[in-house]
Lab assay of single mutants.
Amino acid sequence: KAKLLVLLYAFVATDADTICIGYHANNSTDTVDTILEKNVAVTHSVNLLEDSHNGKLCKLKGIAPLQLGKCNITGWLLGNPECDSLLPARSWSYIVETPNSENGACYPGDLIDYEELREQLSSVSSLERFEIFPKESSWPNHTFNGVTVSCSHRGKSSFYRNLLWLTKKGDSYPKLTNSYVNNKGKEVLVLWGVHHPSSSDEQQSLYSNGNAYVSVASSNYNRRFTPEIAARPKVRDQHGRMNYYWTLLEPGDTIIFEATGNLIAPWYAFALSRGFESGIITSNASMHECNTKCQTPQGAINSNLPFQNIHPVTIGECPKYVRSTKLRMVTGLRNIPSIQYRGLFGAIAGFIEGGWTGMIDGWYGYHHQNEQGSGYAADQKSTQNAINGITNKVNSVIEKMNTQFTAVGKEFNNLEKRMENLNKKVDDGFLDIWTYNAELLVLLENERTLDFHDLNVKNLYEKVKSQLKNNAKEIGNGCFEFYHKCDNECMESVRNGTYDYPKYSEESKLNR
C-alpha cells in the first residue's frame, strides 16, 4: 500500500503543469573576455578590431598615390635624371617610397634638414613645378651647363633637372645676384646647392675665386655659405661634395641669391598645395585598381571598426592602431551559463540550468507544459528593451572611439638618435595607453552587458513569482510547478501579467 502511494505521488508530481523562465541559446562559437572571465561563450557579439588588409596600394578616395619607385624624396625633388618619370607629377593622395629606393642625390652630399622637408611634404597633396630662374636668361655671365658622370643618364654625363651647376664663363666668375618674388599665391619650395671641391685647383678651375661665398636671403631665411675645400674619400667617382638646401617662400615674399662661386642654382621650384589627408609611407606593396579610405604600408583597410592592429602608420580615415589581438564586445547572452554566478555589478545569474535553442524569437521568455502540450514563448517587451539598450551602447562606444585619422611616422637624422629613441618611447607609451583603454573598455562593457542580461532574466522570474504567489511552488531551476490546472489561456495570463490569483487560489489551497 505504501509503495502504491509513492508511485501515485510521483505520477501526480510529474503530471503537474509547469512554467519556466529562460533565455535564448544557439550554436554560436563566439567568445568574449570580461573583467572576471576569459573566453566566455556568448550567443552574439561584435568585433571592434580590424585585423585584415588587402595587401595592395590603392587610390585614396579615388585619387591615385605618387609612387616614387626607384627614387626617394631627395632624388625626386632635386631632379635626379633617373627620376625623370616623376617630373610630370602634379597631385596625389599620398606618397609612396620603397624601403630600398636607390636614386637620391646622384652627386654625393646631403639634403640639409631632410627630415623636416619630409614632414612638410606629408601635408602636401599637389604642386606646380615651374621655372623659377629661366636657364637661358638668368645667368648671362656664367656657364650653366655643368654636368657630371655621377648623374649620368643613358650613358652620358648629366645633372639634376631642377638645378643648374653654374661655373665660370671664360676665365671669370663675376659676382651674381638674382631674385624671385613669389607671385603664386601659395608657398613655394625653393631648392639650391653649394659645391665643396676637393682641392684649391678644382676650386680655381671651376670658379676662378679662391674665397667664394654663397648667400641666400628671404624674410624668414638668411644664410651665408662658404665652400669647404678638403680631400675626401671618393664616392660615386667624386672627391667633391654638394650640400643641398631648401626653404619655403611665403606668398609675396622675395628670395635673393648672391654668389661669387660654388652656387648650384635653382632652375625649377614648386608651388605647394596642402592636403590634410596626405602623407608619406614606405612600402613594398604594389599598386592595383582599387579604392580605399584608409591606406597602410601593408595594404588598404576598408573598415568602419574603431581599432586596427595592422600597422601604426596610416593615411586617410583609419581606425586607431592598438596592439590588441582581440577586441570583441558582447551583444547577446551567455551561451554556457554559470550556476549560481554573481556578476561584478550585482546581477544574479545561473538559476537557469541552460539556455534554450528552441526559443528563437527572443532573448528571454517562457517554456510551459500542461495537458494541452508544451512550447516556448519569447517575452518580446523585455527582449526589445534589451536590444535597444545594447545597440545604443555599442553604437555609442564605437562612435566615441571611432575617431579616424592619419598617423604618419616621424623623421630623425643620424645625429638625432637620442631624440628618436625618446620619441619611440613616448609613442610606445601612448600606444600602451590606447591599447589598455580599449581593452579595459571592452572588458568592463562585456561584464556589464552579461550582468544586464542576467538581471533581465531574474526580473522576469520575479515578475512571475509575484503573480503566482503560493498558487505554485519554485522547483529550483527557474521553473514553477502549479498547484492547479493551468491551461493555455492561464499560461498566457502569466506571461502577459494578467494572471488571476484569486481564481485559482482555492484549487491551489486544496492541492498544497
Rank of each mutant, 00 (worst) to 15 (best):
A230L: 14
R274M: 12
G185R: 15
V12T: 02
H153T: 15
N27V: 02
V32W: 00
S205D: 12
H53W: 04
D253A: 15
A2K: 01
G170L: 14
S137H: 07
V124L: 12
F133P: 00
T167G: 13
Y107H: 06
R154K: 06
K56V: 12
S123C: 05
L249K: 02
V194H: 00
Q203S: 04
R118C: 06
V188M: 11
W192Q: 03
T282P: 00
Y207M: 07
K61I: 00
K3S: 11
L263C: 05
D17A: 09
K3H: 11
V147E: 06
N222F: 15
R274I: 03
W92H: 04
K56F: 15
D253K: 12
L78C: 04
W246P: 02
W76D: 05
N72R: 07
D51E: 10
D253L: 00
F11S: 15
L117S: 01
S91A: 05
L176T: 14
T167N: 04
T177I: 10
P233N: 14
Y244W: 07
N26Y: 05
V147H: 11
D30A: 07
R154G: 08
G69K: 12
V214E: 06
G69A: 07
D113N: 14
E277Y: 14
T98V: 09
I256Y: 10
D171I: 13
S199W: 10
N100G: 14
F133T: 03
A2V: 13
L206H: 08
L166P: 05
N72K: 09
S152T: 14
A212S: 15
N182F: 09
L127T: 12
T148N: 05
N209D: 05
L272Y: 01
Y114N: 09
K234V: 15
T98H: 11
H44E: 09
N178V: 14
A64R: 12
R274D: 04
H239D: 00
R90C: 04
F225I: 14
F270T: 04
K1N: 12
T18V: 12
Y160Q: 09
K59H: 14
D84I: 02
I95T: 08
N54D: 12
S126T: 08
G104V: 04
E187R: 07
G275M: 04
L263T: 00
R161K: 15
K70V: 00
V46M: 12
L5S: 13
Y221N: 03
S138I: 08
D17I: 02
L117T: 05
T226M: 10
L77N: 04
Y245P: 01
E131K: 06
V216C: 10
V46L: 13
T177S: 14
T260H: 07
N80S: 13
S273I: 12
G155V: 01
R223D: 03
E136K: 00
G22E: 04
R90S: 09
A10D: 05
D17M: 08
Q203H: 12
L191Y: 08
P134A: 06
T98I: 02
A265F: 02
G252V: 00
